[in-house]
Design a binder for these strands. Structure first.
Lengths: 262, 262
DNA sequence: CTGATTATGATTGATTATGATTATAATAGA
DNA sequence: TCTATTATAATCATAATCAATCATAATCAG
């Protein structure tokens, strides 16, 4: 179902306010409309002083957006994560029940799935839940648990226990390390336990990992590569991984790294 | 059975508020009337500021500027709630494990307790958890559950089940109605169930209720006044309540209305 | 009853949203 | 710098949607 221009503009605006900027190309992909439409939207909103137009996109006009360095830091790999997230979103269908792990890599995913309907999203992240709080057509289920201040993730026995009683079609996890022998790893042992549980409770398991995670092994292991249904990443992936994934019949989806702006 | 136009308009409005949007075509099919009629309805309701018209349909006026309305709602009795919250905070000691119910009345409470140390805060609100995310000396536990978009509260079986395994020293609840015979009530039956569970799992139970809640009875009951340890409120409370609370030996803490300037 | 009012549906020319195209402008790379 | 690439505004075509209008039927007042 197509969005009305009002809705689209609202989402563009919140996207820009959240991330400081947006490119025409990304918005085209996000909303599935033409460049003309996006440009018209941006120009109209600029007239209303809601944002500032730039070549290739627009930036936030809001004085609320302090500290350009902060935006920069958050946005460091924003483009890559955005692309990975959009690709991951393409695996999701209307009516699915999905599980979205906490983490900065999966956060753009919940942004990307806002346009879907009749979706049930289970998450162990307060931030992800907040991002979906104004999407009335998406059923949001938050796993309980102890809030880890470091990662804003909910972890621990309450989380694992909540997962016990749930089963989802697809799980989308982040990881700190993905290695052929070391498997899937993360620095925190309690988060690893929760991630493991997520794998157990999902039919299909996808990992979102930018290419810097490949070949890395962190402290706590939460799964093997063979546990996966697929992995979505970007950039150059070592041939050994490509072969190993192919041999195990695991999907390896690599989004192109064509850079833009800045 | 033909609908009267008023009835149709009401249903269109609730449809839009529920789903955030509606298309002329869908409404035509839903109500079996012509496009002209639907457009007239929508235009009239737009004049009354009940919704926002778009090409092809209409979107909710609330969801478009959800943020301001939410802030507005929070701010409505902000001064009063602030005072009630500060008073409630005085019942909390370092080292306590407390439960804070979702709601606009209890939100200032978590702001007020940030200064305390060694506190464990259990909450069923994503918003409350977010407010505490940068307080590393406070252990935050989020109850899981389905996110109710209307109140941003987590409710349902997952929430209740998470509560099963917890016990807290003090619970701080909001309520929509507090009445001598009607007890404690709230409009939503699922939220009532969660509130009931909270009462069961706490040693001391406090209700935060501004004076407009007294004598009100909402749809779903979650407890009796005799369940309470105390009630913190403001303004003028009817003498019958004062006597009843005194007789049941329940604390009734009334913060004065013109305390501190502004 | 009659005439007025109201709600509705049908018709139609006008308006809007959108995508495609193209010549121009801005940017990046050599 | 100059050139290639990319983004842009301006234009046009088209399909969807709309407002305005009129006709009809139901309802209401007297």
């Amino acid at each position: 179902m197509p969005l009305y221009s009002e809705e689209r503009k609202n989402r563009i605006l919140s996207d820009i306010e959240q991330h400081g900027r947006a490119s025409v190309q990304d918005l085209v992909e996000t909303f599935g409309v033409s460049e003309s439409t996006i440009r018209r939207d941006l120009n109209e909103m600029e007239k209303e002083k809601l944002l500032k137009r730039t070549h290739g996109g627009a930036v936030s006009n809001d004085s609320v957006n302090f500290e350009p360095t902060m935006i920069e830091r958050v946005d460091r790999f924003y483009q890559e994560k955005q692309k990975i997230a959009r690709k991951a979103a393409s695996y999701i269908n209307n009516g699915d029940t999905i599980l979205v792990d906490a983490g900065t890599t999966t956060l753009p995913l919940v942004e990307a799935i806002k346009i879907l309907k009749e979706l049930t999203v289970v998450t162990n992240s307060v931030v992800h839940a907040e991002a979906l709080k104004n999407s009335p057509h998406i059923e949001v289920v938050v796993l309980g648990g102890r809030l880890r201040h470091e990662t804003q993730a909910l972890v621990g026995p309450i989380t694992d226990q909540a997962l016990d009683h749930l089963h989802v079609d697809k799980a989308f996890l982040g990881t700190n390390g993905i290695d052929l022998s070391g498997g899937l790893t993360t620095p925190n042992i309690i988060e690893a336990s929760t991630k493991r549980k997520m794998i157990d409770q999902a039919t299909e398991i996808y990992v979102l990992a930018d290419n810097s995670k490949f070949g890395k092994v962190a402290f706590a292991k939460f799964g093997e590569i063979s546990d996966l249904t697929g992995c979505i990443t970007d950039g150059e992936v070592d041939l050994s991984f490509v072969e190993a994934f192919h041999q195990k019949n695991i999907l390896l989806d690599i989004v192109s790294q064509q850079e833009e702006g800045r």
